[in-house]
């Protein structure tokens, strides 16, 4: 399965720009879907490995976006350096979340929800830095590297696909390491895991840091893609909710499910549902998600895998 995922990515690198590269509108949608996919993978890493359901990833997304915009505009940091730095700054801000790691289940979800709101308010009020609700415009575009223009739609696509591949590889690596086994054990019994020598709080903290870094990086790239930021956009609840929807749709217990789910629902919503019902097309998306949760709670990817297995003649794989 892992090999087929990498193969699929490799095909995307070549086929997508060749097939859709000329269509700026379509490539724009693909780029947006990859942004959602990046956050969905980061969310699922914390949710599936760390066992913590977050309703506040908008905080890391917004912090990453603002950090990269301000670093590149006020301090003149090169964009490609500002992006990873923005990821680190998102990690720095996630440290304030650490006390919430002691909470479990709905309490953690509520705490992180409130946390995201604080940042939206801060970004609105700290006008000297963020220009408040007026927003920041003319954020520098992605640079040209060795004659290749990353700010073109195809360039943005290739950069985001590379980041997504790196995120997925990291996620897979953590999951298969002995830390990944320990994290899985923690779902069953955190006490028993601590008894055998796992510092469970530290391990969960690391998952929060990795997730915050990924989300901050994606937020930063998005800022340089759309070149404009305002608090209500950068810290919008949509950045918290859409990745959850995507991850659950795709199968949040799998590594690649959230990424595939994000691309599928975003593109289907924009290209199909929007054409059917121009205003309020989200209602179809909502219905589809409700049906998925009812009939295929494991998500799209496990559903397809099972279907594939059945088609092969029901032999046990």
């Amino acid at each position: 399965m892992r090999r087929s995922a990498y193969l699929f990515l490799a095909v995307c690198y070549v086929v997508v720009p060749l097939a859709f590269g000329g269509n700026n509108y379509l490539m724009g949608l693909v780029v947006s879907s990859l942004i959602v996919a990046g956050v969905a993978v980061a969310w699922a890493l914390l949710g599936n490995l760390g066992g913590m359901v977050s309703f506040g990833h908008a905080a890391f997304f917004g912090v990453g976006a603002y950090a990269s915009a301000l670093l590149s505009m006020k301090l003149g940091v090169p964009v490609l350096l500002a992006i990873p730095l923005a990821g680190l700054i998102a990690v720095l801000f996630s440290v304030a979340m650490l006390p919430a790691l002691r909470l479990s289940g709905p309490y953690f979800a509520l705490a992180i929800l409130a946390y995201a709101q604080i940042f939206r308010i801060l970004a609105t009020e700290m006008e000297f830095l963020t220009h408040g609700s007026g927003g920041i415009s003319q954020i520098p575009v992605l640079p040209t590297i060795a004659g290749f223009d990353l700010s073109s739609r195809t360039g943005q696509f290739l950069l985001l696909l590379t980041l997504l591949a790196a995120f997925l590889a990291t996620y897979d690596l953590i999951r298969r390491s002995h830390y990944g086994i320990a994290l899985r054990a923690m779902h069953d019994s955190e006490d028993a895991t601590r008894v055998v020598g796992v510092n469970s709080v530290l391990l969960k903290s690391w998952m929060l840091f990795v997730s915050a870094f990924m989300t901050g990086v994606i937020g930063a790239v998005n800022a340089h893609v759309i070149n404009f930021l305002e608090p209500d956009y950068a810290f919008s609840g949509g950045w918290s909710v859409l990745p959850i929807v995507a991850a659950i749709f795709g199968g949040y217990r799998t590594v690649t499910g959230p990424a595939i789910g994000a691309v599928v629902i975003y593109l289907v919503d924009q290209l199909v549902f929007k054409a059917l019902v121009s205003t309020g097309h989200q209602i179809i998306l909502g219905s589809v998600l409700a049906l998925m949760i009812l009939f295929a709670p494991d998500g799209l990817l496990p559903l397809l895998r099972n279907a594939l297995r059945r088609m092969r003649g029901g032999s046990h794989a």
């Binding site: 899985r184 069953d188 895991t193």
Partner: peptide
């Protein structure tokens, strides 16, 4: 308090974390 969703060998591996 065994880790129910993990194999016997993974459970034992956890014992030597």
């Amino acid at each position: 308090m065994v880790f129910r969703d993990m194999t016997v060998e993974e459970n034992l591996t956890m014992g030597a974390f």
